[in-house]
């Protein structure tokens, strides 16, 4: 393990994540208004995240009869914690809170906790629709996890290191997105999928009345929804060190580049989200396993051959 995490950064990280999540929610409100043909003013969109959070803070909590409150509570709490821990290896500028030797795997392990979290919330609510939402996410998870892992591995192979800062350092000249576009696309898809968001929002879909979150009210819902956005932000931000050159870039300092690139990824995701419907599980599963997984394996193979050809390893 490396040195103890710098205190300043560890305090800064949650604040930054929340701020970016705020911006993402506001952008989402704007985009939703435009897609619906009922534009929302900037000022209204900007305060919407705070107002919704306040609404849920004031709101009463709620328990379902015969529900497993313990598991549901644990599940809800795990979501934001997992997002935060996953973000710990994220270089803010050139330095992450924790520069782990196996940082890429750490990120993967933390975000997999979302599986357990959503499932627990869906199960613990003691409601059929929540349960359907819960296991929809697991089906989805099984489908995105393999392409996601191969995308991560490809970036790690390109840098010949599992340390996120090494991956950034390897992109001083050429961003990885240019030499591994398939992995980048697979990663972006899995970003939305792991946050069960946008086209992958079936686990909390309207057809199951909010799915896993159907029975959540008050603070419980706030924690769940916030955790989901934090997960999206953390995962989208991870695309920057892995594929978009991290803090590398002219004129601006490294932290500014990371911020700009993260926001760009999020804006792209939000803009795309309102152009497309939700993807059904059974469609996605087959596509992911039959098309995306082989594609990412081939991508990993190509990158490995290139690295070997250049005398790596």
């Amino acid at each position: 393990m490396s040195a103890a995490p710098p205190l300043g950064l560890s305090i800064l990280l949650p604040i930054l994540l929340l701020a970016v999540a705020w911006a993402a929610v506001a952008a989402d409100v704007l985009a939703a208004g435009r897609a619906a043909g009922r534009p929302v003013p900037w000022a209204v969109a900007a305060v919407t995240p705070a107002r919704e959070a306040l609404r849920l803070l004031v709101g009463q909590r709620r328990r379902t009869v015969g529900g497993d409150e313990l598991l549901r509570g644990v599940g809800g709490a795990v979501l934001p914690i997992a997002a935060l821990l996953a973000a710990a290896v994220l270089p803010l500028g050139m330095r992450p809170v924790a520069d782990l030797g196996a940082g890429v795997v750490w990120f993967n392990a933390m975000e997999v906790f979302a599986w357990a979290a959503v499932w627990l919330v869906g199960w613990g609510s003691n409601s059929t629709l929540s349960l359907i939402g819960g296991y929809r996410f697991v089906a989805q998870g099984l489908a995105w996890e393999l392409p996601h892992m191969f995308a991560l591995i490809t970036a790690a192979v390109g840098a010949q290191s599992l340390r996120v800062t090494d991956v950034v350092a390897a992109q001083g000249g050429l961003w990885f997105v240019l030499i591994m576009p398939v992995a980048f696309v697979a990663f972006l898809l899995s970003v939305a999928a792991m946050a069960f968001w946008g086209p992958f929002s079936a686990p909390v879909g309207r057809d199951v009345a909010g799915g896993a979150a159907a029975e959540l009210a008050g603070v419980d819902r706030l924690v769940f929804v916030a955790g989901r956005w934090l997960l999206l932000v953390a995962a989208a931000a991870m695309a920057v060190p892995l594929f978009l050159g991290g803090g590398h870039g002219p004129w601006l300092p490294a932290w500014a580049w990371v911020l700009v690139k993260t926001l760009a990824v999020l804006v792209a995701l939000v803009a795309l989200r309102h152009r497309i419907p939700t993807i059904r599980m059974e469609r996605w599963t087959e596509f992911s396993l039959v098309v995306l997984t082989p594609a990412t394996i081939a991508q990993a193979l190509v990158v490995t051959l290139v690295v070997l050809g250049e005398g790596g390893f």
């Binding site: 393990m1 030797g101 196996a102 392990a109 997999v112 357990a116 998870g141 599992l162």
Partner: peptide, 13 residues
């Protein structure tokens, strides 16, 4: 580190 994190990953799944 690697083994520990992989145990977490695999066990959750």
């Amino acid at each position: 580190q690697y083994l520990g994190v992989v145990i977490v990953l695999m066990m959750v799944i």
